[in-house]
Amino acid sequence: MRPLIQITNLKKAYGIFTVLHGIDLDIDEGEVVCVIGPSGSGKSTLIRCINRLEAFSSDSSIVVDGVTVGPGKALAKVRAEVGMVFQSFNLFPHLTVLKNVMLAPMRVRGTKSADAERKARELLARVGIAEQAEKYPGKLSGGQQQRVAIARALAMEPKVMLFDEPTSSLDPEMVGEVLDVMKRLAGTGVTMIVVTHEMGFARQVADRVIFMDGGRIIEQGTPGEIFDNPKEERTRGFLRAVLNH
């Protein structure tokens, strides 16, 4: 079976500063992959290349579900199939929660308003915020906003969901509610790539854990392999630092 996402020789540089040194990575349908590593190691850049929020070197290649991620017309198609959840939520503050979730299906897929609304209410119920549908995002807590952001991305019925440190800007008491939603999502077979510092979540939910440092994948494997039996010294050093924290 062809992998859902094929990343080949992914290189990215800002001027003379190379952020990604030719990464090769395949991700299968239904796989939940957690990306860990020190700050500045290129985790965000890696997943932001998948929907081309970051441009990358022209001798690199990313293929999502058979469509090459490039600067041309196909990009819209890729972006419609790839959902993304940001550290800073990035909800649309001038639209109600419901409208936030309805917007993309109506504009990108041409879904009828009534259908989009039914779907949006269903998703909001799934992430546990059905009662907040008519409110504006500014009135919600961080945890609630992030759950809306997840519902908004899911409304497009994406083939893969990208998460960039979805709990890093949350107050500690709200981390759990967002991770719970993500755990349930992982259980439904959605393909997920999650950049995270939540080692407990990675250990419990990931099919595969990828450790990055200095713009390279240093080591990858099952949570057991990475957390209990890391082979690389850099992985061990990183885990020692975060687990003692």
Binding site: N51, L53, A76, K77, R79, A80, V82, G83, M84, F86, S88, F89, N90, L91, F92, P93, H94, L103, A104, R107, V108, A149, R152, A153, M156
Partner: peptide, 27 residues
């Protein structure tokens, strides 16, 4: 308008036109 608004619109697959009309200009 914060950069995140543009990124969220693009990540959802909105065209530049819809990003402007539905997200950026109203703000």
């Amino acid at each position: 308008i914060p950069h995140g608004q543009f990124e969220a619109s693009q990540a959802l697959g909105l065209s530049s036109r819809h990003m402007m009309i539905d997200v950026i200009l109203p703000q």
